[in-house]
Amino acid sequence: MVPTSYYLILSAMIFAIGAVGVLVRRNALIILMCVEMMLNSVNLTLIALSRQWGNLNGQVFVFMIMAVAAAEVAVGLAILIANTRHRESINIDEIHLLKW
């Protein structure tokens, strides 16, 4: 049986790659994808810990995270489309109306 710490290390790597992607890329779509990837790595962590402690609560949490991620991506993509309609760009540096 693969130890739990290996799964945790893998999910930490995926989370770090997603975080670097959010910081590096300027395309709003790809930033959204990286956020989804980070949410998924957290799901992997919760499932690995659910097996570690022999408790189903972690899997229920993952179910809730999936629902929230679906809602998040739907609203985020709708915001992107509404933004693209006003200015022909999805460069995140040009979306600075609320920036102080």
């Binding site: 739990t4 790597m13 770090a16 590096v24 097996r51 570690q52 022999g54 408790n55």
Partner: peptide, 30 residues
Amino acid sequence: ALGLGILLLASLSYSVFQGFNQPPADVTAI
């Protein structure tokens, strides 16, 4: 961004290796 990512990965890995040395508990419960 690359430096911050490596820092994040190092701190996460360090805390995981500190905390998880014991084998998994009874997996038949789930």
